[in-house]
Design a protein around this nucleic acid. Structure first.
Lengths: 129, 129
DNA sequence: GGAACACGTAACCCACTGGTTACGTTTTGG
DNA sequence: CCAAAACGTAACCAGTGGGTTACGTGTTCC
């Protein structure tokens, strides 16, 4: 069974570990056996084995027996789904400006607070544009 | 202080929680006060407050005092960085074929390994530092 | 000044995570 | 047939995460 009911959480959770990210990077172009993967990290082989399980259960890799080894292959659909979710934050035009405005705003707000320790009258105009 | 030495882990970790993802979605177009955000979820307000802290420490949002409220604003750079990392998995053309060729690859890998049992020599791009 | 409000934080619980060592299982091969 | 190889899994432990309730602090407003 898959396990979680929230695929994005599983994918993001899997990606939250540097070892697992590097494993994925290793599998980017070619499938690899568990042992080969494990040999690339300073942690114990069982530890890597569990990282592989996390990746498997999140759907990011698929494993296939190959003799007495087990080959791991990247399955990019999860990555695609997460990338799609991230895509919703793609600049709805006027984005760069907004960033610039934010920077200014912060600086201004800080100055205001330092100079005049009373009520902030920041009235953010940054949302208006 | 930022805290973690691995920004991508922080970002992915923050995204691994559905509540935090929804908070980000809420902030996509407009800044919101902590209370407004908290009201949108069934969990207690302190719980949301800590979610906001995680988002803040991962650099995904910035907060700014506004009277007796605290305004949270989306900071998209982290999302961009993660999206960029995901981008390395974009089909380097010929991907489908590669899956087909998996069987062959397996056999070849086995032979290689039998002949030379040494470590993987994949190109690692994610610096461990 | 003092009540009410909008927060963040502390203390506490329980579930999960990531590491380890020890072990079980299947496949290879002399 | 039996030893070694290549795995996954179990048991254990320290640390973290997310939830709760209780509390402290700064702002507003009368």
């Amino acid at each position: 069974m898959d396990g979680s009911l929230d695929e994005l959480s599983d994918v993001a959770g899997a990606l939250a570990d540097p070892v697992r990210r590097e494993i994925l990077a290793m599998l980017r172009h070619t499938p690899l056996a568990a042992g080969e993967i494990a040999r690339a990290f300073p942690v114990s082989r069982p530890a890597v084995s569990r990282h592989l399980r996390v990746l498997r259960e999140s759907g990011l890799v698929r494993d296939e027996p190959a003799g007495r080894q087990r080959l791991y292959t990247l399955v990019p659909s999860g990555i695609t789904r997460l990338a799609a979710w991230l895509g919703q934050f793609d600049a709805p035009p006027g984005w760069e400006q907004r960033l610039d405005a934010l920077g200014t705003e912060v600086r201004r707000a800080r100055r205001d607070r330092t100079a005049a320790p009373r009520a902030v009258d920041h009235d953010s105009e940054e949302r208006s544009a």
